[in-house]
């Protein structure tokens, strides 16, 4: 079971959840396009996820080299799986540090609303394509898994 839901699936899950959260924010910005004093909101979860993944990669490399360099191949592989597992737990448990921030407006409006509908629509499209790409990757991954389990393409 160790590899069935590995770091890739985990980070894809987080990414899919992140795109949905961002979608909510963008939709809310569009909905409040005519509300006085509303400040448009956004989130950057991708950088946070990237950071977390880099940390995980670094950790697993260091651990793998320093202590178990003289192991037999099979044992080494098992150890790597163990490291991976603990790192997965870490990714799951520790929080991504992504913050929601207000976006400054590019043009001044009389009602101090900072929503730029063009920008929001572009963000909406971009984000939905990311959502789609992550889901596609997730599907590809599960298809590969199924191929490995059943032995059929």
């Amino acid at each position: 079971m160790a590899n069935l839901f590995d770091i890739t699936s985990k980070s894809l899950e987080v990414a899919i959840e992140g795109t949905k959260l961002r979608h909510q924010l963008i939709v809310n910005n569009i909905a409040n396009g005519d509300t006085p004093n509303f400040q448009s909101l956004d989130i950057n979860f991708q950088d946070a996820l990237k950071e977390k993944l880099a940390l995980w990669r670094r950790n697993s490399v260091i651990k793998g080299r320093s202590t178990k360099s003289s192991l037999k191949r099979l044992e080494e592989r098992e150890f790597n799986i163990a490291v991976k597992l603990s790192a997965e737990k870490k990714l799951d448990a520790s929080r991504l540090r992504a913050t929601i921030y207000t976006e400054p407006s590019e043009q001044e409006r009389l009602d101090s609303n900072s929503v730029d509908v063009d920008r929001e629509m572009a963000k909406l499209m971009e984000n939905s394509y990311f959502h789609r790409a992550y889901l596609e990757l997730y599907n590809k991954k599960s298809r590969m898994m199924r191929m490995a389990i059943t032995g059929r393409i």
């Binding site: 987080v14 959840e17 959260l21 924010l25 939709v27 909101l41």
Partner: peptide, 20 residues
Amino acid sequence: AALRKYAGLTNTFSNAARGV
């Protein structure tokens, strides 16, 4: 809930995503 889970924010935003 999503914010607590994925963004790690303890004090969730007060004037955000709720429509108009």
